[in-house]
Amino acid sequence: MTTTERRVAVPVIAYLVAGSVLVVLSCLLGWWIFSRGEEPFAIDTAWNSFVADWWHPVVAGFSHVLNFVGAGWMGILVVPIGGAIGLILLRRPWAAAYFLAAEAVSAAGVQVLKHAFGRVRPEDILVLSDYGSYPSGHVANAATIAVAATVIFPRVWVGVVGAVWVLLMAFSRTYLHAHWLSDTVGGALLGAGAALLVAAAFALPLAREGTGVPAKRA
Rank of each mutant, 00 (worst) to 15 (best):
M169S: 12
F34I: 00
A97G: 05
W55S: 15
Y131F: 15
S133F: 01
G186F: 02
V59C: 08
F202K: 02
V127I: 15
A215T: 14
S35M: 03
P40H: 01
V158Y: 06
A163D: 08
W94R: 07
G75N: 10
Y131W: 11
V198A: 03
A60G: 13
G83R: 09
L29A: 06
V65K: 07
V23G: 08
P80C: 11
G162M: 12
G212Q: 04
V65T: 14
L16A: 14
I145D: 15
S26R: 02
N48I: 01
G186A: 07
L168D: 11
I88E: 04
I145F: 15
A142R: 11
G61Y: 05
A9C: 05
A71W: 02
V78E: 02
K114N: 09
A207M: 04
P214K: 13
T150A: 14
V112H: 03
V69N: 12
E123I: 03
G159W: 07
G30I: 05
G61R: 03
T45K: 08
D130Y: 01
I85M: 05
L189R: 00
D53V: 07
E5F: 00
A104V: 13
F68K: 12
A71M: 09
H115I: 05
V166G: 13
L87P: 06
P11V: 08
S35Y: 00
V120C: 02
A42W: 09
A218I: 11
A146S: 13
S35H: 00
A203M: 05
L206T: 12
D44C: 04
E123K: 00
E209D: 03
E209S: 00
W31V: 13
R6Y: 00
I125R: 01
V160C: 15
T45Y: 00
